[in-house]
Amino acid sequence: MAKAKKIPTILITNDDGITAPGIRNLVEAVKDLGRVVVVAPDKPQSGMGHAITIGQPLRLNKVVDMFEGVESWVTSGTPVDCVKLAVDKILHKKPDLCLSGINHGANHSINVIYSGTMSAAMEAAIESIPSIGFSLVDYNYEADFTGAKHYVHEIVSTFLKKKLDKHFLLNVNFPSVPLELIKGIKICRQAYAKYEEDFTQRKDPHGKKYYWLTGAFVNFDKGKDTDVWALDNNYVSIVPVQFDLTDYKLKSQLEKTFK
C-alpha cells in the first residue's frame, strides 16, 4: 500500500500587519501548496528589525474569516514574536517552511538589516525552519502583486519538492512591473547600497523641536550580479542569506596577527 503523501505546513507572517494586501496575496499564492497558518502583527512593524517583546505582555488572538479557509492569528508583538509564538503556542511544532511578506517596499541591499520582514524569516532559520522573505519594490497600498504572486508560487513549489538545509534562508525581491515585463529570476549577492540620511528639524504646534528622518537611497555597487541591479533590470532577485555574521577573511588575518 502506497504511503500517504505528507502535506507540508507553511507558516506565514509579515511586518506590515495582518490587514496588509501583501500578506493576503502571499496567502493566495501558496494556499494550494499545503496547510497554511498565518500569525501576523496587529499593526505595521516596518523597520523593526529583529526586535522581540520583553517586559510587557503579548496578546495572541485567533481571527475568524480573515483569509478564507486559512487558520489565522494576530498578535500585539513584533514579526519575530510572531514566529516564536506560532511555533510554541499554535503549531506546537516546527512548520516545514516559513514565509514572510509580501512586504510593501524593497528589502534589497542594506535593508535586510532593518527589515522586520526578513528578521521574521531569519528567526525561523535560526530555529531550524527553512524560510523565505518576499518583498515588492512598491510602497503603494494599491500595488499590483500579480507578478509577485506568480513567482512566489513558482519559488515555493520548487523548494517544497527539495530537502532543504534547516537554516535555509532566502531574501526575494520583486520588481514593480507587470508580470509580462519580468525577465525571470537572478541569483544575486547583496549590493553595497544604503540610505544617505538626514534629520529634518521641525517644530510641533507648541513650538518644540522634533526631527523627521529623511534621506535618499544611494547604490555604491556597480556590479551586475547584485540584487539592486537585478531589480533595476526587471528581474526577480534572490539572495541567499545567513545569520552567521562572522567575517571569515578577517578572522584568518587576525589569527595570523595574534598567533
Rank of each mutant, 00 (worst) to 15 (best):
I182G: 09
V30K: 02
L85C: 04
N234T: 05
K31F: 09
A125D: 04
L58I: 15
N103F: 01
A193H: 09
V152W: 00
D244W: 11
E255Q: 14
A4K: 13
K183S: 04
P21M: 11
H50L: 07
E28I: 05
K162Q: 10
K224L: 07
G47C: 11
G101V: 03
T19D: 15
A86C: 04
D244M: 06
P130T: 02
V39G: 07
V218C: 09
A20G: 07
V80A: 05
V239N: 04
T78G: 08
F134R: 02
K186L: 12
A51C: 14
I185L: 14
I54T: 13
M66R: 14
D221L: 06
F199K: 10
I23R: 02
K3H: 08
P8K: 07
K203Y: 15
C98I: 03
P8L: 08
S109F: 00
K89W: 06
T75L: 01
T146R: 11
A191R: 07
D227K: 02
Q45S: 10
K224T: 13
P8C: 05
V137H: 01
H50T: 09
G101E: 02
L170N: 02
S76L: 08
K166Y: 07
K249C: 08
A148P: 01
T246A: 12
K186N: 09
Y151R: 03
T257Y: 15
K5I: 14
E71R: 06
D96T: 06
L160Y: 06
V30F: 09
M122T: 11
G47A: 04
E197G: 11
S46E: 11
A230V: 10
S131N: 03
A106Y: 00
A29R: 06
K89P: 00
L136S: 00
L181C: 05
V228C: 15
H153V: 03
V87G: 01
Q190H: 05
V112A: 04
Q253C: 12
I18A: 10
E123V: 00
L26I: 04
F67T: 06
P205A: 09
K162M: 13
K3N: 08
Q56W: 14
K209W: 09
N111D: 11
L181D: 13
D198H: 14
P178I: 08
L213M: 14
G101D: 02
V83K: 00
S176Y: 00
Q190C: 10
